[in-house]
Nucleic acid binder design. Structure first.
Lengths: 150, 150
DNA sequence: ATCGTTGCAAACGGTTTGCAATTCG
DNA sequence: CGAATTGCAAACCGTTTGCAACGAT
């Protein structure tokens, strides 16, 4: 019952007449493991540790491929930079993002999902996907701006 | 009981020892009127029609100022580009965005707002603001991808 | 008059592209 | 083998910065 991202990706590539390369596998793996800030630059830097020959362009080209294939999507971080996150995750997971330490807490709520569908229907809007992010401060950073630090 | 963006902005600038200039007013006005794709480039191009001397740098600097002041925030569009939206709007307004024609429908739902607070509390998370966007197809564009047109 | 602000053009930094060498199937 | 892919470096933007002229208080 587990979905197998690699297998799905391989099938997609085959169907498109594209090739499964070491680099594409490395980058997909990176996104699957990444829990945060997966910017093109960080992906490139981190993967170079194991594969020094990996080129920047390949990272960008692969991310674009994954995005077009629907396996990843671009996300905007609260600091204004952006990166990618894979879309093999379960149902819909939304984010609570700490503006101090940037911790990302995932949440999902069936009632909210249902209300979204109701609202969409009311406007005769056909929902395809959504993004729901709550920005604030996590337990550790407290309700008030960090003191002393920064 | 109406908030007056211009007045609030003026007071903010005064408090910071900054000046209210023609350019800053123009750019704030633009954001207040803009209903969509307010990218730096588009803002610059559109405002140049009335003020040919307006420089790119001024647009970027003012957007940064508005963002830091908390009057605007950067948003990521579904095509990957990004722009700004002002934050003077009433309570919270969220968006339904048509992936075909890019129409933006605003919605707000008290129950969803309340659930967000509940979820946040459960994680001892202090919410400051949120972004909730539903992507799909509007009434006009129908549930299926546009045919013929593109 | 004084300092912040502006427009310009050059500098930057992230992203894309052309191309010869390489690799997957 | 042949088509797709890669790495590199150059080309491309969108964004930032230094600076002299300008403008708001």
């Amino acid at each position: 019952m587990k979905s197998q991202p690699h297998e799905v990706f391989r099938q997609y590539l085959e169907a498109q007449g594209l090739k499964l390369t070491k680099q594409r596998t490395e980058i997909l793996d990176y996104l699957l493991r990444a829990r945060d800030h997966a910017t093109p630059e960080r992906i490139h830097a981190d993967l170079r540790a194991k594969d020094p020959m990996l080129g920047r362009a390949t990272v960008f080209r692969t991310l674009l491929l994954l995005e077009k294939a629907g396996f990843a999507s671009k996300i905007l971080f609260s600091d204004g930079s952006h990166g990618y996150e894979h879309k093999f995750a379960r149902p819909h997971h939304d984010h609570m993002i700490c503006v101090d330490c940037r911790e990302v807490i995932e949440f999902s709520n069936a009632t909210i999902e249902r209300l979204q569908d109701q609202i969409s229907r009311r406007f005769q809007f056909t929902p395809l996907w959504h993004r729901h992010e709550i920005f604030g401060r996590c337990r550790k950073c407290g309700p008030k701006p960090a003191q002393g630090v920064k």
